[in-house]
C-alpha cells in the first residue's frame, strides 16, 4: 500500500481523534459535575455548560442529563459527538482497521440502547471503556506513523482545549501542551507551526487569556 494520505483522510483522522477524545473527556468531567448535582449544587450543569461554551437550553438537571447525553437533534449532545466520531471512523476502516472501528461501533450501540430508556450518566461506563480500548487499538494497529500522529494530534488538541475550558491547573495544561506539541512537530506539513509557537507563548503567560488560547488552538490544523 502507498504511503500517501489524501487531504480528506488527514482531516478524518484529525477529527476522529478530536471527537473521540471529546466524548471521553466530557464523560469524565460530567461524572464530577453529576456528583456535585447529587447533594451539593443541583444546578451545577449551568456551570458545566458555561465552561464547555454551549448554550444552556436545559430546564432542569433531569432535562440536562437526558438531552445532553441522548438527544440526537442536539448537536452538542454526547450521542451527536459520538456519531461524528463514527462518521469519521467509518471512512477510515482501512487506516484504523475493523478491530479499532469496532470499539466506536460498540460505544454507539451502547449509547443508543441507553437512549431508549431513561438513563443517567452512570450507565455510560461501557462507552468510556470502549473508547479506552479504541485508543489502545490505535497504538496497536495503526502502523503508518503519519496517520497515527494525525489522530493523536487531534486527541491531544481536544484534550488541551477542554482542560483549558475547565480551568485545569497549570501543571496539567503544560503536560498536555507538551504531548500536543510532540505530535504536531512530527506532522509539520499539516499544522501551522507559527500558531503553535504563538500558542506556546500564550500558554506560558502567568495569567493566560483563555479565549486567545482557544482561538489559537482552532487555527493549528491547516488542511
Amino acid at each position: 500500500m502507498g504511503e500517501t494520505i489524501s487531504n480528506a483522510k488527514a482531516g478524518n483522522l484529525f477529527w476522529l481523534g478530536r471527537y473521540t477524545e471529546r466524548v471521553h473527556v466530557i464523560l469524565h468531567f460530567l461524572r464530577k459535575y453529576r456528583d456535585r448535582m447529587i447533594d451539593e449544587d443541583a444546578d451545577a450543569y449551568h456551570l458545566f455548560c458555561e465552561k464547555l461554551g454551549i448554550e444552556n437550553c436545559y430546564t432542569s438537571c433531569d432535562d440536562f442529563l437526558n438531552r445532553f447525553l441522548f438527544d440526537k437533534t442536539n448537536k452538542h449532545s454526547l450521542i451527536s459527538i459520538l456519531t461524528c466520531a463514527s462518521d469519521n471512523a467509518i471512512v477510515l476502516r482501512q487506516e484504523i482497521k475493523s478491530e479499532t472501528l469496532a470499539y466506536i461501533q460498540l460505544a454507539i450501540c451502547h449509547i443508543e440502547q441507553c437512549a431508549c430508556i431513561n438513563s443517567d450518566v452512570d450507565v455510560l461506563q461501557p462507552v468510556t471503556d470502549s473508547l479506552m480500548a479504541f485508543w489502545g487499538s490505535i497504538d496497536e494497529r495503526i502502523h503508518k506513523r503519519d496517520a497515527r500522529n494525525m489522530i493523536k494530534a487531534g486527541k491531544y488538541l481536544e484534550k488541551f482545549d477542554l482542560h483549558i475550558r475547565f480551568d485545569y491547573p497549570r501543571e496539567r495544561i503544560n503536560y498536555l501542551f507538551d504531548r500536543l506539541e510532540k505530535h504536531i512537530q512530527k506532522e509539520k506539513s499539516i499544522f501551522d507551526q507559527n500558531s503553535l509557537f504563538e500558542l506556546k507563548l500564550a500558554t506560558e503567560q502567568p495569567f493566560y487569556n483563555k479565549q486567545e488560547i482557544l482561538g489559537r488552538v482552532d487555527r493549528l490544523f491547516t488542511v
Binding site: 500500500m1 502507498g2 500517501t4 489524501s6 480528506a8 467509518i90 471512512v91 476502516r93 482501512q94 482497521k97 475493523s98
Partner: peptide, 16 residues
C-alpha cells in the same frame, strides 16, 4: 471499505 482493508489497497473517494 472492508475489501480495501483486507486487500491492503487504498480506498479512494471521488476527488482523490
Amino acid at each position: 471499505s472492508f475489501l480495501a482493508e483486507k486487500t491492503e489497497t487504498i480506498l479512494a473517494f471521488p476527488g482523490d
